[in-house]
Structures are given as structure tokens and as C-alpha cells.
Design a protein around this nucleic acid. Sequence first.
DNA 1: TGACAGAAATGAAACCTTTCATTTCTGCCT
DNA 2: AGGCAGAAATGAAAGGTTTCATTTCTGTCA
Lengths: 342, 342
Amino acid sequence: MTRPGVSVTNVAAHAGVSLGTVSNVLNRPDRVSPATRARVLQAIEDLGFVRNEAARQLRAGRSRTIGLIVLDTGNPFFTDLAGGVEKAASENGLSLVLCNSDEKSDREAHYLSLLEEQRAFGILLAPGVELPQGVDEIRGRGTPIVLVDRGSSRTQCSVSVDDFVGGQLAIDHLLERGHRRIAFVGGPLGLNQVADRLRGAREALQRRGAGAEDITVVETEALNVASGRDAGERIAGLSARRRPTAVFCANDLIAFGVLQVMTKQNLTVPGDVAIVGYDDIDFAAAAAVPLTSVRQPRTQLGQTATELLIEEATESATHKHRQVVFSPELVVRESSARKRSR
Amino acid sequence: MTRPGVSVTNVAAHAGVSLGTVSNVLNRPDRVSPATRARVLQAIEDLGFVRNEAARQLRAGRSRTIGLIVLDTGNPFFTDLAGGVEKAASENGLSLVLCNSDEKSDREAHYLSLLEEQRAFGILLAPGVELPQGVDEIRGRGTPIVLVDRGSSRTQCSVSVDDFVGGQLAIDHLLERGHRRIAFVGGPLGLNQVADRLRGAREALQRRGAGAEDITVVETEALNVASGRDAGERIAGLSARRRPTAVFCANDLIAFGVLQVMTKQNLTVPGDVAIVGYDDIDFAAAAAVPLTSVRQPRTQLGQTATELLIEEATESATHKHRQVVFSPELVVRESSARKRSR
DNA sequence: TGACAGAAATGAAACCTTTCATTTCTGCCT
DNA sequence: AGGCAGAAATGAAAGGTTTCATTTCTGTCA
């Protein structure tokens, strides 16, 4: 219980130098003579001095911490994204605070102001259904914000993946494999990502022209396994004539849910129903029926977002907002293997 | 770019009151007359004042943030644990910083000192192979630390689940289902959790006495899906005579890897090989062959740890270190269904 | 009207670090 | 020995909040 915080002043006294010198030992050791430096270091050791980050920060005016607000910490997509952020951040001497908004806009707002009060170095925001107001104000007051996993207008930086193309990729693949009755599972449709993937899917179908029915949309409450199971039940309940031969899921968690129900109902995948997921999380390849999925460059998404953020924070005068859009990529696995006969 | 930080002083001037009053409006609004309060609030609004957390903290001497250091942010076990922590923390007006040590002790040490410099309210540590030195010093200097997912001696608080019992549960179940040739997959064996689960497994086998061979141990490099696949290959490669009829995996990620390989090699689960996992993460139930698993009260683990931490931080004078140990629970699913014939 | 209690408002001090303009020291050259 | 340049060390000031002992105000009661 050495509670009575040891400060630089104490260290200075103990080492018989001025506190300015202690600070120099800490921050610019080369400007201090070896002898003095050793003495100060010894004093630090003796006293168990620990730098007070709050005081540093107060002086510096800004912290060295990046805040990342995501929709769901439990979704591997976001943890991988966070991995990319952490990597880029630590390479620049920054650390990461991970905040879970849980798709709730009040929590999103809460974290946003918390981070602003902490004078975060910057904020990476993966927004929910609607962009919280206040983002522009926060940026205006000096805390840079970059949007992640969501495109934006010219007034701010953003890093995203082209979900429209992703939807097309998935459907083109299924059409090529001979599927004509296809369902889309995902939601809430208010989420940009979901809506864009569906739009892409529809576009691909229309381009194909006649021969393919319109896509059946099964909306879910959230993008998790439980929602996928619910949707799966609905699909499995259809008569073989009406049941889609392929399902395109808005993310892999949903796909898992659907897959599980199909198996349980003795419908084979891909024989009776082919499945395509989205995100290509690590579990996708590990599923018992390895999942075809639309891969997003998750780690790179995080890295690039961080770089953009650093750029905005560092060159605030000359900075021009940029919107980076990555391309998704289809990874074909067994869950959509070619139909054997017909 | 309202960069020139607006401070309480500015607000006070703008509202025509002293800065003490502004502080009162912020922290004890009832001690300020309604009229004045309104005026100050208006000034805050006009100027776009945002509290400076660093300054608050400097004054307070301690932050309102809990640090949680885990082995792997990508493992749902830890994200669920973090969920429990976050819940308990936010109920007490605290926020959470999630730190990923990635099983590397240098990163663990790095985060430990980072959190101490930030005068974290407290630290929850899920340690890797060995307890980092310095933990006692940090606690001695006034930052409470509670060990999570690992038992400890009387000198510190800890919250864990009885892995020895967990191992027994798994093996007792497999024995009861008629299995006699059982393998254990997991690693590194230096991890306490892994070692204890194996010890429990062995104990159960011995208690059963003759009729059961000793358990075959397949050590893995890490507790993830890829490692599970490697181990799965090794097991699938064995002749039917030597191949175990059941595999007990040190966690669910490993189990997924094993499951995947079995399926690919046309070995049925549980027909040819039964599988029992550990943790009962959400994906376990969602796997195509739903996984029997030893459930740990993940969320509660986090909640309890947080409560202990708060207790230690708040009642530091009277605080007695406690070691809380939860009991695991077996959840039976298809992956270990009773063998049909024999 | 004067005194007084309680409410409201005040402002100096403290928290700890970093910076930077000055001062002091060291050693070398003439 | 005197002068000087460069290295080393100094210490006051600033950064923004909260606290708390004081002061000032408001209204009531005698």
C-alpha cells in the first residue's frame, strides 16, 4: 500500500536533481549525463515510481488511445477487424480501446462522448442502423472520426467493402451452379450492409434475365446464429416445390444457424439446399459442411481505417477526407458444391 | 476546429459565475440555484464545452476504467467473459478496456504497466502459462488485480472454474456411454486450464479401474481451430483398431477442428468417433453436429471477478482476498450420442 | 430595523507532468 | 589564466478539474 503516489518531484529529491532532469531521463535520456541518468533511474527503482498517464495527457492535450466502437464483440468479423486496428495502432505507439455498442444507438452515443471526454486520439466507428448525430460536432471539436464498414459522403473518411458487389458475387455463383429458386436471409434490412448485399443480389438476378424467380427475402432480427436458426426453420418448413434450392445469408453467423436447421431436418447441404455466407470468418472453413462465403478483408479494413485516422489526426490542416472501398472475394467451399444431377 | 479547448474557466466567464459553480453544476447540480444552473448549462451548450477526463482523473487520483487482459479476443469464451465484466462494470459506472495478450507474456507485461500508468481502477488478468512477475508490486502500489480463469493462493483474489471436475465430468460421461479408448486433445500442457482438465480426466479413468486404457494425449500448440485440425489429422490417420472411439478436447475451438477433419475423412460423429468439447461457446450448439461440451459460467465468471475487484478497490482496508471457484456443468448433445450397437 | 441561519457562490490550492528559456558547469584553446 | 562553446541541469509556468474553507446573499424572525 504505497498509496501516497510517488511523483517526479519525489524522485528528483531522492536523486538530488531537479524535476526537469527526471523528466529528461524519462523522455530524452540522451540529454542527461550517464552518471545522473543512472542515479535517477535508481531513485525511480527505489521509490517504485510509476508515470501518471493522466498528468501526461493533460499536458499533451491528447491521449494515445484509439477507440473502436463495434456492433458486436461476439462476432468474429469484428474481432478480426479489431486485430487489424490493434496491429496498426501499436506500430504507431497507440493503444486500442474496444467498445461494444451491441447495435444499440444509446450505447453508441455513450461511448462516443466517453471517448471525446477522454480526448481519444481518434475514433473508429462501425455505426448501426443510423449515423448518430453529433459525429460532425465531435470531429469539429478536434477528435477525428473514421467510419468503418460503412461508406460515407465526402465530408468524412470511411473504409468499407463493396457490399453491392458482394451480393452479386454470391448470386452469380449460385446461378452459375444452376440454382433458380434462391432466398436471401438477413436483417434488419435497415442495416446498410444488409440492404446493399440484397440490392446486389437482386441486380445479379435481373441481369440474368428470365429463368430465375425473384429472390425470396427472409428478414431476421439480428445477424447472429439464433436468428439464422429461426429463418432456417421457416425455410425448412416449405414444401419441396416451394423451398429454395439455395440460400444466400447476410453473414456467416446466420448461415450457421440455417445450416444447423437443415442438417437437423435431414435436408442435405448442398444437395437439397446450397448455402452461401458472408464475411468468411474462420469458423466458416471449420464448419462441418465448409461454408462458401464472400470474404471481406477484415484485418486490412481495420489497418487501413487506422492509417486514415492517424493521417487525419496528424495532418489535420492538409487532410482531405477519403473514402476507401475494398472489393469482396468469393471463396467457394462445399456448401455450394455443384449439384450432381437434376 | 474549435481546437483551443474550452475549459470550465471559459464556461464560467461566459456564464458570469465562478468556476467553482460550474463544477458544482457538473457534479452536484442540486447545490446550485435553478437560474444559475440554467445559465451555466446554456454556456456549456454555446461554447461546446466537453469535460476533460484527464484533468478529472489527475485530480481524483484514479480512473473509472477497468482493464481486462485476456489470452485471445477471438475466442468466444473470452468475449462472453468480457460481456459479464462489462455488465457489472457499467452497473457501477465503470468502463472496460479490453486488452489482447495473444498468449504472449511480453504483451501481457506491456498491458499491465500501461494500465498501471493509467491508474486503472483495477485489473482483471487471465494469465498465460506463467504468472507475470510484478503483479504483487502493482497491487502493492495500489492498483487492485484479480485473477480470472485461474485459481490462486491466499495472497490474491481469483475467480475460476474447477477444471479438474470438468475433466472428470467429460470422461465419466464418455465411460458411461461405453467408450474405453479415449484421447485427450489440447495444449500447451503448460497452461493451467489444460493441465487440470487432463488431470481430472485421468482421475476419472483411474477411478473406473480396469477396462479402460490410459488416455492418449495429443498435445497442440494453441487452443484454436487450426490446432484442432492438426490433431484431428493425426487421430484420423490411425487404424480403426488403434483409433480412439472418443476424443475429449480442451476447448470447443479444438473440438471444431477435430470434428471438421473427421467429417472430411468420412468418419461419422458420434458413430466412429464421439467428441466432447469444453467451454460450451454458442457455436457449440450451432455446429452441424451439435457439440457435447463442458459448460463454464462465462458471463458469471466475469461478473463475479468484477465484483471482487470493486470490493478490493473500495474496501482496501478491510478487504480479505477471496478465491471463488465455480463448478462446470456437462451439456450433452449429439456429438456424444449413445452408440447404437457395439 | 437588526441579527441571524441557511443557501448559494467563490476562488485558491492541489493533482503531476512536460516544456523551454535560463543558468550553471566542464573542458578546451589561446 | 581567461575566455568560450557546448553540454548538462534547472525551475517556473501551464494544462483543466475538483475540493473545501470562506465569503456573500436572501429571507425570516424578533
